[in-house]
């Protein structure tokens, strides 16, 4: 806000300032009721602000899921680093953690009496159901984008079924599928496809 810059973000946006990164991640962290945080992040950083492109976002998300740590915090570090190096990573992670933490603790301090009413419980279940749309929307976009041939589609289908139907641990599935898929991509790239 100090430089009074207009908030018109077009296709090729310049790298945002560190404070701007912090505020943008805080906004996502504080408004993401009902879960589906990575869907919020994709909508905000890929579709709305165009800070990163969809391919970068998705590979960052897969890595963030596979690495130890809370996935959305990992993803915040990944995107923040991509935007502004070390300070950007710190701003992204702190924005995602600190303001929601203050709110969470404030709620505990108020002993959550408001949230314990049955009506509030139903409202929050409805919010969570609507928030699922964010995850599903992101999944469908990602699927359409990744479906570039028989092998990627097979990788996608097996990953989905292994986690959703077979209930295998995410880490095992990624450890098995990622190397296969990466090797195939490397082979394709080498052949200049």
């Amino acid at each position: 806000m100090a430089d009074g810059e207009a908030l018109v973000v077009e296709a090729e946006a310049p790298a945002p300032a560190v404070l701007e990164i912090f505020l943008a991640f805080s906004r996502v962290g504080l408004t993401s009721f009902g879960g589906g945080l990575s869907g919020w992040m994709m909508r905000e950083f890929v579709q709305r602000r165009r800070w990163v492109d969809e391919g970068e976002f998705l590979s960052g998300l897969a890595l963030a899921q596979a690495l130890p740590g809370v996935n959305v915090v990992n993803l915040s570090i990944w995107i923040g680093f991509r935007l502004r190096g070390g300070p950007g990573a710190l701003a992204g992670a702190l924005g995602m953690i600190v303001p929601p933490m203050l709110l969470a603790v404030a709620l505990v301090a108020l002993s959550g009496t408001l949230l314990q009413s049955p009506l509030a419980y139903k409202v929050l279940a409805g919010v969570a159901a609507a928030a699922l749309g964010l995850s599903l929307q992101m999944g469908l976009r990602a699927a359409r984008r990744a479906a570039r041939g028989v092998v990627p589609v097979a990788v996608m289908a097996i990953t989905f079924l292994a986690i959703f139907q077979a209930g295998l641990p995410l880490l095992w599935v990624v450890a098995a599928m990622a190397p296969v898929s990466i090797a195939w991509s490397a082979w394709r790239l080498r052949r200049g496809a």
């Binding site: 391919g55 998300l61 469908l140 990627p152 990624v174």
Partner: peptide
């Protein structure tokens, strides 16, 4: 290579 894995995971 990670794109289809991510898509399957998200769905």
């Amino acid at each position: 290579g990670l794109a289809p894995v991510a898509a399957g995971m998200i769905l």
